[in-house]
């Protein structure tokens, strides 16, 4: 009877382990590429690789409305040419099969959270609303993209891996 109880316990352990692994694999973030199949606005959490855009001036057009953009590496800040309306921080996320989306984030919130010189890691996870009905294009500097897919970012979920191996600091005094 002892052995049967131990075997039963091991059996349950295997089942729980398998269920746990399935849960872990199913909770990983979807790749940006998976958005290609969506045809209506959808709340999503996806991961992708940020695209290096260089440094310079560009024009961002969102649904026909032009923005003046300052591109600073992996991201840019776009202000409406009309001088009215929201300013955006924007960056491209590329999926494993090369499919890209343009991520738009409220510029004020972006700078208040990330400071003046944010660090982008190899993989960026964003939570937001995918809007396939919105079109956008970026022209200027080294860039000439026409993008038909937009994510309105609610939050950038930053991994903190890159923070650990850098220099350390203390508060003086």
């Amino acid at each position: 009877m002892k052995m049967s109880t131990i075997l039963l316990s091991l059996g349950i352990a295997v089942v729980i382990f398998a269920a746990g692994l399935y849960m872990v694999y199913s909770s990983t973030y979807s790749d940006v590429s998976t958005l290609a199949t969506l045809s209506s606005p959808t709340r999503v959490t996806v991961q992708g690789s940020p695209l290096m855009m260089g440094v310079g001036e560009a024009t961002l057009i969102i649904n026909g409305e032009p923005y003046r953009a300052r591109i600073q590496g992996y991201y840019g800040i776009a202000e409406p040419l009309s001088g009215e309306g929201r300013s955006y921080a924007f960056f491209f996320l590329t999926g494993s099969d090369g499919y890209s989306v343009l991520a738009l984030y409220d510029a004020r919130e972006f700078t208040s959270k990330y400071g003046g010189s944010p660090v982008f890691e190899d993989t960026v996870v964003v939570d937001g609303v995918f809007r396939p009905e919105v079109t956008a294009s970026v022209q200027g500097a080294d860039l000439e993209f026409t993008i038909t897919n937009i994510i309105e970012v609610k939050a950038i979920l930053k991994g903190c891996h890159a923070s650990y191996d850098g220099e350390k600091a203390v508060v003086a005094g």
Binding site: K113, P118, V119, S163, Y164, E167, A169
Partner: peptide, 17 residues
């Protein structure tokens, strides 16, 4: 109160570390 932390971080306050 005094622990060292990463000098620069990807997001938020370095002191949160």
């Amino acid at each position: 109160f005094k622990g060292a932390f990463p000098a620069t971080v990807s997001l938020g306050s370095p002191l949160a570390y």
